[in-house]
Design a protein around this nucleic acid. Structure first.
Length: 248
DNA sequence: AAACTCCACAACCGCAATATG
DNA sequence: GCATATTGCGGTTGTGGAGTT
């Protein structure tokens, strides 16, 4: 038994949207709002399936969309977020008001991924070149120790071990054991945990960021605190202290 | 100028998650 | 609790324009 199609595709138009179709969809949604995507094409007089209408609206017609090239700061931020969130484009897109997950995914796949490969960095695991990883590891150990001291007596490893229900993965053990630089799994289970105040890679390069109160970035839960320390250290050491754009 | 290649972006597909009855 | 409908997501493919031969 095959899967039921999302809609009856017989007689439906596919492919690139025409200006007329865009106008119909735009007018309909602006005057009626979105209640049920399945009914939208019929009510708007379109020979498209609801799914197609939704996609067109979300990725192209929405009035709040910010179009145009990505700035260097946005690219830095994207690399930073991808290192933590992996290919969770919708989560990443949430950090870029006006950008769509599709747009971000395309940008990553067509540009950033290539450039990272050229630099010898694994775009999935964000592994730096081997020699760089080794250098980073030593620096990371000492920076991590310093960060711990600044933040206070947070017994990070112990807390994570004592808290098996913590949503944050116990990255500290393996991430600080010179085994690599994989940050992509870090937020698999905790991607929404209030990272809007986390500094971007660009921010991290500025003194103003480093001089901010530590409390500003430390979030409620103890596990989050430990997570913050780790990602902060990661960020400080990422790319050997250079921004993505500088590496070009 | 035509043919070809490359690239960026738009759109589609299938699956998973969530909502609804 | 289950079945079905709907929505959302991520991977992949298709398309059209720009650049090159």
């Amino acid at each position: 038994m095959g899967r039921r199609p999302c809609c009856d595709k017989v007689g439906l138009k596919r492919g690139t949207w025409s200006v007329e179709e865009d106008q119909k969809l735009m007018n309909f949604i602006l005057s009626n709002g979105i209640k049920c995507w399945r009914h939208v094409p019929k009510l708007a007089g379109l020979l498209r399936c609801g799914k197609s209408c939704r996609l067109r609206w979300m990725n192209y017609l929405r009035p709040d969309l910010k179009r145009g090239a990505f700035s260097e700061a946005e690219e830095d931020h994207l690399v930073e977020l991808h290192s933590r969130l992996g290919n969770r484009w919708s989560k990443i897109a949430a950090f870029f008001p006006g950008r769509t997950d599709n747009e971000i995914k395309n940008h990553w796949n067509t540009r950033i991924k290539k450039r990272l490969k050229l630099l010898g960095v694994d775009p999935q695991g964000h592994e730096p070149p081997i020699e760089q990883a080794e250098t980073n590891c030593d620096a990371k150990e000492s920076t991590f120790a310093a960060m711990k001291e600044v933040v206070g007596n947070i017994n990070v490893d112990q807390k994570l071990l004592e808290n098996p229900v913590s949503k944050v993965e116990t990255r500290l053990d393996h991430d600080h054991s010179c085994s690599g630089h994989n940050t992509s799994k870090a937020l698999r289970e905790d991607s929404d945990a209030g990272w809007s105040t986390f500094p971007s890679l660009t921010d991290l390069q500025s003194d103003s960021c480093l001089s901010r109160s530590m409390d500003e970035y430390v979030v409620q839960e103890s596990s989050s605190e430990s997570y913050w320390i780790d990602t902060y250290v990661d960020s400080l050491l990422s790319w050997d202290g250079l921004s993505f754009s500088n590496l070009e």
